[in-house]
Design a protein around this nucleic acid. Structure first.
Lengths: 252, 252
DNA sequence: AAGAGTCGTTGCATCATGTGCAACAGTCAT
DNA sequence: ATGACTGTTGCACATGATGCAACGACTCTT
C-alpha cells in the first residue's frame, strides 16, 4: 500500500460529498496544505478532479467517463441485455440485472416498461442488500463462513414490516435461496413492490450475476408474479449458457 | 505533480480498455512488477479496482458510487448562475435556465431586469412544453422514438396563432432544432414575447439543460433578438465547458 | 488608505517513502 | 519431474514526497 496514493484517493470520496477548498481538503486529510495541493494537482491532471472558478475542487468529468467505460466492459451485462429486453416484452414488468462486488450489490442494467432504458443513473446506488431478491441470490452463493461474516456486519433497516429483521433471519433466508435456486422480495423494501429473481451462473457454476422482475401489488399480486418464476429462470439459464460459452454447469 | 499518484491514476484509463493482469499493467506503466502490484493494491483498497477470479484487474464498483454521488452534487444551476447574470448584464433581458425531467420541462433559474433574482416561485411549474425554446432544445436531444412517443402524448394548446399546432409540426420543429443547435419561440406562448435559446451539454455531449433569453416585442423586434444568438450560444457553451469539467487549463 | 486576516502558491532541506532487485511460492503445460 | 510462467515478499538504496516558511493576491475592517 502506497501512502501517497492512499492519501490522493481519499480525496475522492471526500469531494463526492460536495466541493471543498484546499484548506478543507488538507485538514480532512491531516496533511499540510502544500501536500494537499500537489495531490489535487495530480488528480486534476488526470481529470478526476475539477476546479471551479471559486477555486474549490469537485469531482471531475473523467470519473463519469471511466465509470461508463467500465460498465460497458462488463460482458455479463452485454450478453444479458437482449435477454432482459425479451423478458420485459413477454411480461411487461421492470427487469433488473445486478452483480456482487467488494461487499456491495449493484445494479448494472435495467429494462423498464416497454422501452429499454439504461439506468446509468441508478448505478452506484447501494442496493437494499438485506431484502432485494438479487442481493439474496448473489450472497447465497458465497461460502458459509463468508455469508456469516457479511451477515454479521450488515445493518438491517426495517423498510417495511416484512424486511429481513436480523442476521439470523437473513442467513436462514440465504440458505433457502441457495437450496431452491431462486429468490423473492415480497414487500420487503417497499410495501407494494414484489420481486422474483434467479441467478446467472458462469461455466464453473458460480453465480456471476442475478436478475429479477419487479411489479407493484396493484398490477399483479405476489401469487401472480410467482407464476412468472419459470420464465425468469429460463431467461437466467439462457444467459448463463450464453455467458459460459459452452455447456452450462447446472445444479439440480 | 506526484509521480506515484500519477502512475497509479494512469492505471485507471488503462483498465478502462479492458481487464489486464499484473505483468501487462507493469509493462504499460514502465515500472517493475512489484511497483505495479503495490499501486494496484492501493487502488483496490479504495475500491477503484477490482480483481476478478482469474486474478486480472478491472475497474471497480466504487467508481460507480463516486460518479453517482458526484452527479447528485453537480448542480447545473450553481455552475450556470454566474454566467446567466453576466449574460443578463450584457443584454438586459430576462434569462431562463431549464431542465427536462420526468416528461416535464422545468425552469430552475431565472435572472430578470437588473437584479439577479432566483424565481423559486416559478420553479416546478411546468413550462409550455410545446412552444418554449428551452423545451424544444431539451426534447430535441432525445432519441427519435422517445420524441415521437412524447409528441403523441402532448396536448397542443393554441396560446397564440403561432403556437405549435400538433404533433407533426412539433416533431418537425424538433428536427430543425436538433440540426441547428439552437431554438426560438417567436410569439408562440405570448403574442408579444420572443425567445432565443441554446443547449447546455454534459461531457458526453448530451443536453443536460437549456437556457434562453426572452424579450417583449415592444423592446426589441424578433430580428433584433436574433442578433443576440451568438452571445447566447457562447454563454451556453461556456456553461457546458465548466459543467463537463473540460475548461481549458491555462498553461504556465 | 492602510493594516489584518484569508487563501493559494513556491523553493528548499530533510528524510520518510516508494522503488527495483532478487529470491520465493504457486500454477499449469509438457 | 521439469521448466516456464505468474504473483508475492524482504530488503537496501536514493528518489521523490513532505512540512516549513516566506511570498503574493485578495477581501474585509478600521
Amino acid at each position: 500500500m502506497s501512502q501517497t496514493v492512499d492519501r490522493a484517493l481519499s480525496i475522492l470520496p471526500l469531494l463526492a460529498q460536495g466541493p471543498a477548498d484546499l484548506g478543507q481538503v488538507a485538514e480532512r486529510l491531516g496533511v499540510h496544505k502544500s501536500t494537499a495541493l500537489r495531490l489535487l494537482r495530480t488528480l486534476h491532471e488526470h481529470g478526476l478532479v475539477y476546479r471551479q472558478q471559486d477555486q474549490r475542487y469537485r469531482l471531475g468529468a473523467r470519473l463519469f467517463a471511466l465509470a461508463q467505460e467500465a460498465v460497458e466492459n462488463l460482458d455479463v451485462r452485454e450478453i444479458a441485455h437482449s435477454h432482459l429486453i425479451e423478458l420485459n416484452e413477454q411480461c411487461g414488468h421492470t427487469v433488473h440485472l445486478a452483480v456482487y462486488e467488494e461487499n456491495e450489490v449493484l445494479y448494472i442494467d435495467k429494462v423498464e416498461s416497454r422501452y429499454p432504458v439504461r439506468m446509468y443513473s441508478r448505478i452506484g446506488k447501494p442496493v437494499a442488500i438485506t431484502v432485494a431478491a438479487v442481493a439474496k441470490l448473489l450472497l447465497a452463493d458465497l461460502t458459509e463462513p463468508e455469508r456469516r461474516v457479511i451477515a454479521e456486519r450488515l445493518d438491517y433497516p426495517m423498510y417495511t414490516s416484512r424486511s429481513t429483521p436480523n442476521a439470523g433471519a437473513f442467513l436462514r433466508e440465504l440458505a433457502v435461496v441457495r437450496e431452491q435456486g431462486w429468490a423473492t422480495d415480497l414487500g420487503g423494501h417497499e410495501e407494494s413492490i414484489n420481486c422474483v429473481g434467479a441467478p446467472i451462473r458462469g461455466a464453473d457454476g458460480r453465480v456471476v450475476a442475478a436478475m429479477s422482475v419487479s411489479a407493484p401489488n396493484v398490477v399483479v399480486t405476489a401469487e401472480e408474479l410467482l407464476t412468472l418464476l419459470p420464465l425468469v429462470r429460463r431467461t437466467a439459464d439462457a444467459i448463463s449458457r450464453e455467458y459460459s460459452g459452452t455447456t452450462p454447469v447446472k445444479k439440480a
